[in-house]
């Protein structure tokens, strides 16, 4: 039985009211996330182009949900359970031991995407089934760079596991290398990246951990109610406006990333969503390194990082 059939079987055994899974997008070789009812299980698909993280979608669905989750997706789900945003008993998790996903934009450089019918991983090669024939690309050349540093390819929480468990690693070599640059070089690098940002807020919108109704980068407050006083509304702190320039964008990204200390699960959705290809994971990984090295925190601990800091503080 192939991987997709196994996933379908697992989903069928779940008794969930809804299914969050990957479905092949029309007219493109990648999968997108859909919410399906149990009788639509046959629509699902899965491939190295099942890129996205379903965790955020789960937060908007009531009742029992079955979900297909890769290693990093399961990390996000576990983190949201830890933070009280999801209930374990409402979830049926079909975990997939993940070999890594493809960077879709990289793939587009190797092949005309409209020619691709199917994609599968075979050994170290990505095999593209084309309209005419087949094309093999070494997986390393098109893999999402983020997957090279993956700490948890095997789901950390699941009801059914599909595939053989595989080892993750903790590798900050890229960050260490960057840290060796001079302060000025690092500054110039980041400014040259941030100045490109168009502040579409896609990174925030896709991040499973950016679920706040009230975000400090917004100029006014979504959590406003009919009872909010004029004084409250008038004094809502405006940390930065909507202007786009290297300075404001830097503040935006630094503020955002700081809220992920000890929380970022490393799914890479921020970077994947960024239309301007900002190296956002590098920021998150730097923070992760700090959390590990200075605070000795491990994401696998049951208690959230900020709560632990409070306890230590007391």
């Amino acid at each position: 039985m192939n991987e997709i059939e196994k996933i379908k079987d697992a989903l069928k055994s779940s008794n969930a009211e809804k299914i969050v899974a990957f479905v092949r997008k029309e007219s493109e070789p990648r999968e997108v996330l859909k919410v399906l009812s149990p009788n639509e299980v046959d629509k699902i698909s899965f491939s190295p182009l099942s890129l996205n993280n379903p965790a955020k979608l789960l937060m908007q669905i009531n009742g029992k949900v079955a979900v297909v989750a890769k290693g990093c997706d399961s990390m996000a789900i576990r983190q949201l359970i830890k933070e009280g945003k999801l209930k374990r008993e409402n979830l049926f998790i079909v975990g997939i031991s993940c070999k890594g996903v493809v960077d879709y934009r990289k793939l587009a450089k190797f092949v005309n995407l409209s020619e691709v019918n199917d994609v599968e991983l075979n050994g170290n090669d990505l095999v593209l089934k084309l309209k005419n024939g087949e094309k093999r690309i070494p997986f390393l050349e098109v893999v999402d760079e983020n997957c090279l540093y993956c700490g948890h390819p095997t789901p950390v929480i699941y009801d059914v596991l599909i595939g053989e468990p595989r080892e993750g690693k903790r590798d900050f070599s890229d960050i260490e290398q960057f840290e060796r640059l001079s302060r000025e070089e690092r500054w110039n690098y980041w400014i040259s990246q941030f100045e490109r940002c168009i502040r579409c807020h896609a990174c925030r919108s896709v991040c499973p951990l950016c679920y706040c109704e009230e975000c400090m980068v917004d100029p006014s407050n979504l959590a406003v109610s009919p009872m909010s006083t004029p004084e409250e509304k008038a004094s809502y702190p405006r940390i930065l406006g909507k202007t786009v320039n290297a300075r404001d964008n830097t503040i935006y990204h630094l503020l955002r990333v700081l809220h992920h200390a000890g929380r970022c699960v490393g799914c890479g959705e921020c970077e994947r969503a960024c239309p301007m290809e900002l190296p956002l994971r590098m920021l998150e990984r730097k923070l992760e390194k700090v959390v590990v090295e200075i605070f000795g925190y491990d994401l696998n601990e049951d208690i959230p990082f900020f709560s632990k800091l409070d306890i230590v503080g007391d």
């Binding site: 919410v35 807020h201 896609a202 919108s205």
Partner: peptide
């Protein structure tokens, strides 16, 4: 819209 993230990618591009 079920999976829409309410970001500004579509409108800004």
């Amino acid at each position: 819209a079920i999976n829409c993230k309410s970001c500004g990618v579509c409108t800004y591009l």
